[in-house]
């Protein structure tokens, strides 16, 4: 389900997410299943759309990761999460390493608990 909440992300030495904190709970990334690209809805942002104003691209890289809460205390859930990185460097593709990362968004999450709640 769509979450779209800001989170803070911890990066590993390869520059990929190895953990994140969502709603006060720390998650450890177990595996990164795939990286992909979503896009900005620039018409909803107070952004300039002059040539090259979006650093050359409207792409937003997303890490789809399997993660688990680092401690069993609290309400954390095992699941799959899409972590989107806004304000990307120039001409980013998922194949390249990023040097500058600013904002992270938890776009979506898929967990048994959420599914149960949705279907209940």
């Amino acid at each position: 389900m769509h979450i779209n909440e800001e989170i803070s992300v911890e990066l590993g030495h390869a520059g990929t997410p190895i953990g994140f904190i969502w709603r006060g709970i720390t998650y450890r990334v177990v595996t990164t299943t795939e990286t992909w690209l979503t896009r900005r809805a620039w018409w909803n942002e107070p952004a300039s759309v002059a040539r090259d104003a979006l650093h050359g691209s409207l792409d937003v890289p997303v890490w789809r990761v399997d993660a688990t809460p680092s401690s069993t205390i609290g309400a954390g859930m095992n699941g799959t999460f899409d972590l989107a990185c806004y304000d990307t460097p120039h001409e980013a593709t998922p194949d390249e390493n990023f040097t500058r990362r600013v904002g992270w968004l938890l776009m979506s999450a898929w967990t048994d608990v959420l599914d149960d709640r949705l279907l209940a």
Binding site: A41, W43, V49, R51, L54, S57, L58
Partner: peptide
């Protein structure tokens, strides 16, 4: 041609479908 043109592409898509972006 270049990544920056993608934004122009969005506007053309809107003109093609005759609908606002979003």
């Amino acid at each position: 041609l270049i990544p920056d043109d993608a934004l122009t592409g969005d506007v053309l898509d809107a003109a093609h479908t005759l609908q606002p972006l979003g």
